[in-house]
Design a protein around this nucleic acid. Structure first.
Lengths: 328, 328
DNA sequence: CTGTTAGCGCATTCAA
DNA sequence: TTGAATGCGCTAACAG
């Protein structure tokens, strides 16, 4: 592998000049050509390691997420990766299996690797865990209490509020809601939105209509079954993420329960899936593309400027009305 | 951030001694203690960039996959990452959107980043694209023609053969099969297995029973619908990946078609999902954990030994028999 | 606009 | 066992 010295030699200039050329600083046209020729002939590639050592930047961004098997996370990662790669950055992705210890361990791993910035979807992290970190951090999806930090989130409360209100406006009062873990930020926020809409319409929240579980297919599946076996069956179900929605759909189908005739359904997250299913499911969609872009912008801005101001971006979801809710 | 020199100073030894200590070479107990104290006091962390420059290793492994929204890929990546991280390696993941140009572009990006090895799930790559690469490569899931390379794959043909044969043994002859793209390795192999089982039992393959599409929900959904509208409806459907299986299940449910009374089904890949659904779906499962482990082992071995022998590991799938196939 | 020079932090030779 | 010295490949002063 050729190095900058060999290029300089062949081009008849100094390494400094080559370096300048490589970094977009003007050099004489004459030299420029010579350098370009030498680079081509030698198949020279700049050594990013040496460059990193010198400029104190690794050109990598760490991504810390709970699970890699969650479609929402991976979709966002994909978008981010495809943006930052254009600026020469690469991502190091770590999933911490929703595990408290692993979350910190892998955070430290990323720090040790000298990433230039970190994108985190946190669960257990607290203020203390991150207050001594001196590289840019962007929190996504979830937020950490009491921390003034960059973040890109959606208005979870409003999302759930809108969905619930839509059901209420369609005459529903017995609305079952299936949520993620109690201790998870999005889960709490989404419940708040549900609660707010119900209260606003003076509808009592029945405890058995609020089911917490994991954000997975099984939770949705089992919760739907248990709801449909209740003495007083809810007239509508609100599933609060993709996997849960999928589970609910599968369960209702199994039980041969017609949507929306027998029960209405509002789902979450995956428009593509919602369109495939019959009847098409009314869902809350997150602006995934926008979220990914904002995250990428935020982390790049924080890394590339010395601007230490924090910015928290809250994006709105959209309620895509399709055919799974009946007016009663 | 402290560097090795400061540690050496505080410990009263030379940087060489500290370096030796860090690399597990014996130093006098007396010095060892002094060094350990200094490291603790200074909160010294070895700088991986400088180390990389010196040892000509980046301690990163590139992962090149078609899509990041495919559960099979991400599950494997998660396993790999959790193994290699223990040896200090990190992964740089690139998805190329199943795009021919991006596949090469991102491969080059990884090469430019000086990764120590690459794990590739290829689609369009040919021998020519990789013959000049001088770092270890492990191909997964799919194989490249004519290339003597490391690979970890499953016996796709046998998997499909077993599934088809199982259906045949249950009396089925009109077996619909829903496959991925025609040009994709796994897709071709799985078709071969189907074909072989059919031929072996002298069953004619009806063209309309073989549907190619993408490995996604929509393909499974639409194909199932079209099959159930045929003049001669197949008595069984074989779905050849997770997303397709999901689509088929959703479609059959929508059409109120009972499984297995009206049509039998064999799915692929996701045992968890298959267990949630009623009736539980009989599926071909890939040994994901084993696949991930083997990939990690193979790439690490190739990187850490100078052993340039190639090894191709072919793993067997398992047919998990549940309740979605009826004997006729 | 260009070249000389120093040094990023580390691992490794070689002599002691 | 140890330490002095060297250099991995690059960028950034600085002087010209």
């Amino acid at each position: 592998m050729a190095n900058i010295k060999q290029v300089a030699n062949m081009a008849g200039v100094s390494t400094a000049t080559v370096s300048k050329y490589l970094n977009g600083i003007r050099v004489k046209d004459f030299n420029k050509e010579a350098i370009e020729n030498a680079i081509t002939k030698l198949e020279y590639k700049r050594n990013p390691t040496a460059r990193s050592l010198r400029i104190h930047k690794s050109m990598t961004i760490g991504v810390l997420i709970p699970e890699l098997d969650n479609l929402f996370s991976t979709s966002i990662i994909s978008i981010i990766e495809n943006i930052i790669i254009k600026k020469g950055y690469s991502t190091i992705i770590c999933d911490y299996k929703s595990d408290r210890e692993l979350e910190i361990k892998k955070l430290n791993f990323l720090l040790d690797k000298l990433v230039d910035g970190i994108i985190i979807m946190p669960i257990y992290l607290t203020k203390k865990d991150i207050e001594n970190i001196d590289i840019p951090i962007v929190f996504i999806d979830r937020r950490i209490n009491d921390v003034d930090a960059n973040c890109v989130i959606i208005d979870n409360e409003k999302a759930a509020f809108d969905a619930t209100k839509y059901l209420i406006n369609n005459g529903h009062k017995d609305i079952g809601v299936i949520l993620g873990p109690r201790n998870v930020y999005t889960s709490k926020e989404r419940f708040k939105g549900y609660e707010k809409a119900m209260k606003e319409h003076d509808i009592e929240i029945k405890e058995q209509y609020v089911i917490h579980g994991d954000y997975d297919i099984k939770t949705g599946h089992d919760a739907a079954i248990s709801m449909m076996k209740m003495n007083k069956i809810p007239t509508a179900i609100f599933a609060t993420n993709y996997e849960i929605t999928l589970g609910v759909i599968i369960a209702l189908n199994e039980m041969n329960i017609n949507v929306p005739e027998e029960v209405s359904l509002v789902g979450f997250d995956n428009l593509e899936m919602a369109r495939v299913v019959r009847p098409k499911v009314t869902i809350v969609t997150q602006p995934i593309e926008e979220i990914g872009k904002r995250i990428a912008q935020t982390i790049l801005r924080a890394i590339e400027t010395q601007n230490r101001e924090k910015q928290c971006i809250k994006l709105d979801t959209e309620l895509v009305i399709q055919d799974s809710v009946k007016k009663i």
